[in-house]
Design a protein around this nucleic acid. Structure first.
Length: 145
DNA sequence: GCCAACGTTGGC
DNA sequence: GCCAACGTTGGC
């Protein structure tokens, strides 16, 4: 699909982290959509600002599970994060796409050579990170299609 | 619970 | 503008 401007129709892929105790993929499925706010890191915020409607993101459970459990899509591009008193940070809106058939654990990802340069593995504390097309495909394959 | 990584803050 | 101190994240 061709729209206007330089980024027309090209979707990007991302990975977002959440502690399932705080907000799990099941919560997202229950809610239908959610405002992805609370990001307080400039690198992560830059990634949020680069998200386009229709981009898809792996939904990773940190601490409990340490695995990718599902896919979400961006339904609203970056807007000011109302929970940020400084006004510096942004939020996006995400909706659930589907759960993965098999979740892909951190150990699985570390063991996969195709993922050795993955942003989330190189910088584990980053809560929003880009995923290349090759990495996206590799993880989908690991998840059972 | 501990600790490594890393970002942020504030004194100078 | 530097850098030490501190806070937070997240794997182990």
């Amino acid at each position: 699909m061709l729209v206007h401007g330089g980024e027309s129709g090209v979707t990007s892929h991302w990975l977002v982290k959440s502690e399932p105790n705080a907000y799990s993929f099941a919560d997202l499925q229950r809610d239908g959509s959610t405002v992805w706010d609370g990001v307080r890191n400039n690198a992560a915020a830059l990634h949020l600002k680069a998200m386009k409607v229709g981009d898809e993101a792996f939904f990773y459970h940190s601490q409990e599970g340490k695995e990718i459990v599902g896919i979400a899509s961006v339904t609203r591009t970056a807007f000011p994060d109302a929970s940020d008193p400084t006004g510096r940070f942004v939020a996006v809106e995400l909706a659930p796409v589907r759960a993965l058939k098999n979740s892909v654990t951190l150990a699985d990802m570390k063991a996969e050579s195709a993922l050795k340069d993955m942003a989330m593995l190189r910088q584990s504390r980053l809560s929003v990170s880009p995923v290349s097309d090759a990495e996206w495909a590799a993880i989908l394959k690991m998840a059972g299609g």
